[in-house]
Structures are given as structure tokens and as C-alpha cells.
Amino acid sequence: MVQKLLKPLLIMGGGAGLAAAPVVLSEYALGFMVSVMSYVTLATAWAMFSGPTRYISLATVAFYGTGAYTVAVLSETLPYPLVLLTALAIGVVLAAFVGMATLRLAGIYFVVFSFGLAELVRQLITWFEVNVTGTLGRYIFLPFETQHIYWQLLALAGFTIGLGAWIRRTRLGLAPKVIGDDEVVAAHSGIALARTKVMLFVVSAALMTLAGAIQSPRWVYIEPGIVFNPTVSFLTVIMALLGGAGRLWGPTLGVIPLMVLFEWLSANFPDHFSILLGALFILIVFLLPNGVLSALEGWMKSAKGQSNGKTIEEAQT
């Protein structure tokens, strides 16, 4: 009983504490927290689709960048909420198109497509800006300070985790798990394979687009080359994997240690950043294939199992 009450209380308390953070934090620390919230959203949204289906999406920054660039184009002409809605709509349409073209087929087609999607969108936008509008590079003048962006991202991250928790309990959330385990069984038990995958992909991409859109005023000056930075896709995958893409809180848990590490690495080893990152990535794939949470649980299980015997099974459920 106590545990049942404890969890929502903890989440509410944590949320309130995070919301109050701008009061105490310095500008630098708050900027760091903005990145943390943005990556919590990205990694959780990534895991929402790629975790259960095991389709590795390398296209995070395609949606994130689309969101950011939409704000850069429209922020002067439309009111802010409408700009966010437009960004969301563009992200949804792009994801639906990509999903419908590739997710009906074997997973590899999707991976190949997602690998180049960001570069494709970047080239198309650059071409359009140079040849049609004639303005490459845009300024965003929105009356937002760091804490405003932080609160928006905190809300989005909270919403993403909540949505993830909710989807897990619905048929939409159970279906991809079956698909990930065995596509044939899934198809035979009446799951619409392609529709489920496309829907989850669209939801995940929509959240990524919003994260980019909300964070864009932080840049002030935006260019396709800046917002479509492939490192974002890379970091999202590595964070979700470290925490465990199969768990609701896994990606969040992966974000925090890695953000601290990246901050330290980029300050001390700016030239070796991608080498160290790549090596870390390979280590995670080899040592923690299911993420830290599963590994910890495995260790605890074996440690407890020696002392308590069978009671663990009951305690777990």
C-alpha cells in the first residue's frame, strides 16, 4: 500500500523540485538542464519506437532539426503556439511518409533510410533556401529566456514519459513487443504489423520534432548545417541504450550520467570527442546489451537469489 502511494508522490515531488530549479541554478547550470530535458525527451521518444520493435532509428536529428528550422522560418509571421503546431504537423507528415515507405518492409530498409534522412532533409532545405527564398541562415527573435525554454522542455519530457507509461498499458504498446519478439506470431495473432509500427514511429517523431522546435530559440542564429547535426542522433541512441531501451525510465537514467560525461569531455578533450564517444558506444553495445537497469536487476537477482531462494519471484511481481 505504502509503495503504491510513494511512487506518485515521488514523481510529483521530483517534478515540483525540477520546476523550481531555475530559482537556484546559475545560467550555466540551467543551460545544462535544458540539454538534459531535451535529451530525456529525445531518448524516451526514441525508445518508445525502437525499444520494443528493435528497429534502430538513426533519424532523430531529421525530426529534431525539422522542428527547429520550422520555428526559425515561421517565428516572425505566426503566433508561437501556432508555430509549434505547424512544426508538429510537419514532423507527423514526414514521419508518416517515411514510415509508410519503409516500415512495411524488412527492418534493414528502415535503417538505411533513417541513416540518410537527416542529410536528405538538410540538402532539400538548403536547396530550397538558396534557390527559392534566397536566405540561407535565419535569426530567431522570441522573447524567451533560458528558464522559459527549460519549463517548456520539462513539461514535454514529463508528457513524453507519461505517454510512454500510458502506451505500455494499451494494445498499441503491447503489439510492438510481440512484433519485436516474433513478427510471424504477431501477424498470426491479428496484429496489424505495418500500422502499429507506423503509428508508434509517428508518435515518437512528433515528440522529437517538438523538442527541436522548443529548443530552437536557444541558438538565435539557425542554419541547416547547425540544426541537422548527426551527433544528436548518435547521442540519443547511446543514451537510450545505456539506460535500457526496453524500460520506461531507462533512457532518462542513461541521459544524466552521459550528459555529465559529454560536458566534461567536450571541455577537456574537444578534439577527441567523437573517438571517445565511439569507443564508449561500442563498449555499451558489448557489455550492456539491454542497458544498465536490466544488468543491475540481473545482479540483484543473483545476489538476492543466493540468500532468499525463491521468494524473489513473488517480490518482483
Binding site: F234, S274, I275, G278, A279, F281, I282, V285, F286
Partner: peptide
């Protein structure tokens, strides 16, 4: 794994 290798070699 090769995605990680990509970043190492490129770096």
C-alpha cells in the same frame, strides 16, 4: 557496433 566504429574512425 559499426555506428560506434564510424565515429571512432571519423574522429
Amino acid at each position: 557496433a559499426t555506428f560506434g566504429l564510424l565515429f571512432i574512425l571519423q574522429g
